[in-house]
């Protein structure tokens, strides 16, 4: 691809690129992959996939997205659409590997202790997620990272809705406790600013 062509594609909006991709323009789709590849891989890692698993799943998700790009109407963000595809693919792979039942079982092993941040210190999301059990992390990532509703997450995980809600609730409580110092400092800076 020429430099001018790459420049032209990089100046286009996601929806325009998706329209070109729907017409068979693979270079346009490549630009979408360049823009959102890391976000999708990051989500899969947060869901508990290893780096190489996340890489494979993200590749499959993008290929699948290209195959069904005509279904993307531009009503939501392209990244959110691909993330849902990737999250569901991740669930399917985990179900095949029979890991899902272990991960989401109630009373699953508590996670390794995570050092609490210094007072007023910042803890990033990835660190905070380590404080969650696998099931909690999975449910929170699906609902807040992939944008699935509780019902959709329950369906993807093949779990009762109540179980998903419980995982999300407990996960949120833990995250709030971990991330609150950062949020408060952000709020404080806003007030001072």
């Amino acid at each position: 691809m020429s430099r001018a062509e790459r420049h032209r594609l990089s100046s286009l909006h996601d929806v325009e690129l998706a329209t070109l991709a729907a017409a068979g323009d693979r270079q346009a789709f490549g630009e979408l992959v360049r823009r959102h590849g890391s976000a999708v891989r990051g989500l899969l890692r947060r869901m508990g996939a290893s780096a190489s698993e996340a890489d494979d799943l993200a590749q499959d998700a993008f290929i699948s997205a290209f195959e069904s790009i005509s279904e993307f109407r531009g009503e939501g963000a392209f990244a959110a659409w691909v993330k849902k595809i990737a999250a569901r693919a991740c669930m399917r792979r985990m179900q095949r590997a029979k890991r899902l039942r272990d991960l989401t079982a109630a009373g699953a092993d508590d996670p390794a202790p995570v050092a609490h941040p210094d007072p007023g210190g910042r803890m990033d999301l990835d660190e905070a997620l380590k404080a969650l059990t696998d099931g909690e992390r999975l449910c929170v990532s699906l609902c807040y990272g992939a944008g699935l509703s509780h019902g959709e997450a329950a369906e993807a995980l093949n779990l009762p809705l109540g179980t998903v809600k419980s995982h999300v609730k407990r996960g949120l409580d833990k995250l709030r406790a971990r991330l609150a110092p950062e949020d408060q400092s952000v709020e404080g800076r806003r007030d001072n600013g």
Partner: peptide
């Protein structure tokens, strides 16, 4: 969650997907 993490091999990942396509 929406913040894109910094993954070092982002460019090569995009190239791999492009080759598969």
């Amino acid at each position: 969650f929406a913040r894109t993490p910094d993954i070092s091999d982002a460019a090569s990942f995009a190239d791999r997907v492009q080759r598969r396509l």
